[in-house]
Simulated assay, not measured.
Amino acid sequence: MNRIDVDMGDLYAFVAVAEKLHFKAAAEELFISQPALSRRIEKLEGATGVRLLDRSSRRVALTESGRLFLQHAHSIIGELEAAVHGASDSMRQRAALVTVACVPSVVHNVLPRLLKTFAQQFPKTRVHIIDERGEEVLHSVVSAVADFGINFTGAQEADIDFTPIYGERYVLAARKDHRLARRKSLAWKDLVDETFISVSSRSSNRILLDHALAKLTTRPTVTYEVNHVTGALSMVVAGLGVAAVPALAMSKEEYPSLVGIPLTHPTVSRTLGIIVRKGSLLAPPAQALLDLLRREAKNGFAGGQAQG
């Protein structure tokens, strides 16, 4: 198939002349010179192989072929404008939605207060939060479902940029009336006689803890097992036992009856980071929310943690 040497400027020029039936008026409407307009019409007639306009020094008229071509030109221009406007609308809609994939501890105890600030800056922007375990958070970013993520895994992925923002240690969640609640710190061996609540063995939190405690000869025995940290904390609130959880999970507002006691020997921590797809360019609202998270991390996510 031979390439047709016609551009949209040629079509717009022809439509302007066909509607005005006057070269000077058409040229003024298009903000081009009359010779430039004439060259566009000649180029279009050369490409189509037919005469589209009858013109003399006194008048301009459409030929039969010109009238037929005018219908096609209107159709082509209309389709292009619809496509351009549709793409623009789609981008505006995408820019008006920020999707963040985030581990639950950050969602519950960090994002709410940040979103209040964000809403003041972008009042018309919708925010979709994917609060899942680390594996799902990573998958959401890799698959472009989320604009960015907050996670403690992802550094190993070739297509992901992982930027560390916060080192988070594990603490013992206990009720304030628990016999250990006044301790400044606890060794893992101090928990052997406690009723211990843990997240599922499939959880990234559990895998990290099991790996860190693998060399201990004395370690707590799990009595209750749940799928999520929030479930474990609810059981602690109910007085069923104690649980080792990430420090960010210990919200003073959400769990006023609990304390978080630093765990030592060994000290176990995880590194939270921002994960984005390599080469991705965030829309301004998404970038603004990410920047808010970075600033909050520099302050140690201090707004929502419970102190032991």
Rank of each mutant, 00 (worst) to 15 (best):
Asp5Cys: 00
Asp5Met: 07
Val6Ile: 15
Gly9Lys: 11
Leu11Met: 10
Leu11Cys: 07
Leu11Arg: 06
Tyr12Trp: 10
Ala13Ser: 15
Ala13Lys: 11
Val15Phe: 01
Ala16Phe: 08
Val17Glu: 02
Val17Met: 03
Ala18Arg: 02
Ala18Ile: 08
Glu19Ser: 14
Leu21Lys: 15
His22Gln: 13
Pro35Ala: 12
Leu37Phe: 11
Arg39Glu: 08
Lys43Asp: 02
Glu45Leu: 01
Gly46Trp: 03
Thr48Pro: 05
Gly49Gln: 10
Ser56Arg: 01
Arg58Gly: 06
Arg58Val: 08
Val60Arg: 00
Glu64Asp: 15
Arg67Lys: 15
Leu70Tyr: 09
Ala73Val: 14
His74Pro: 01
Ser75Arg: 14
Gly78Trp: 06
Leu80Asn: 06
Leu80Tyr: 11
Ala82Gly: 04
His85Arg: 15
His85Asn: 13
Ser90Lys: 04
Met91Arg: 15
Met91Glu: 14
Gln93Thr: 11
Ala96Gln: 14
Val100Tyr: 10
Val103Ile: 15
Pro104Ile: 01
Val106Leu: 12
Asn109Met: 04
Val110Met: 07
Pro112Leu: 13
Pro112Arg: 11
Arg113Phe: 05
Phe118Ser: 08
Phe118Arg: 06
Phe122Lys: 04
Val127Ala: 02
Ile129Gly: 01
Ile130Ala: 02
Glu132Trp: 06
Glu135Ile: 06
Val137Lys: 04
His139Asp: 13
Ser140Met: 02
Ser140Trp: 04
Val141Thr: 13
Val142Gly: 00
Ser143Thr: 09
Ser143Gln: 05
Ala144Phe: 07
Val145Leu: 05
Phe148Glu: 04
Ile150Asn: 09
Asn151Ile: 00
Asn151Leu: 01
Phe152Lys: 04
Ala155Phe: 07
Glu157Lys: 05
Glu157Trp: 03
Asp159Leu: 12
Asp161Val: 14
Phe162Gly: 07
Ile165Val: 07
Tyr166Gln: 02
Glu168Asp: 15
Glu168Phe: 09
Glu168Asn: 15
Arg169Asp: 14
Arg169Met: 03
Arg175Phe: 03
Lys176Phe: 02
Asp177Lys: 11
Arg182Phe: 06
Lys184Phe: 07
Trp188Cys: 09
Lys189Gly: 00
Asp193Leu: 12
Phe196Ile: 06
Ser198Phe: 00
Ser198Asn: 04
Val199Ala: 02
Arg202Asn: 02
Arg202Gly: 00
Arg202His: 06
Ser203Ala: 15
Leu208Phe: 01
Leu209Gln: 15
Ala212Leu: 11
Lys215Asp: 15
Leu216Val: 06
Leu216Gly: 06
Thr217Asp: 11
Thr217Ser: 12
Thr217Gly: 08
Pro220Met: 10
Thr221Ala: 14
Val222Asn: 10
Thr223Ala: 11
Val226Lys: 11
Asn227Thr: 07
His228Asn: 03
Thr230Asp: 05
Leu233Arg: 08
Val236His: 08
Val237Arg: 12
Val237His: 02
Val237Asp: 10
Val237Pro: 01
Val245Glu: 12
Pro246Val: 01
Ala247Glu: 15
Glu254Phe: 09
Tyr255Leu: 14
Leu258Phe: 13
Gly260Asp: 13
Leu263Glu: 11
Thr264Asn: 10
Thr264Lys: 10
Ser269Arg: 05
Ile274Pro: 01
Gly279Val: 14
Leu282Lys: 13
Leu282Asn: 06
Ala283Trp: 01
Pro284Ser: 09
Pro285Asn: 10
Gln287Leu: 14
Asp291Tyr: 02
Leu292Phe: 08
Arg295Trp: 00
Ala297Asn: 09
Asn299Val: 01
Gly300His: 03
Ala302Val: 08
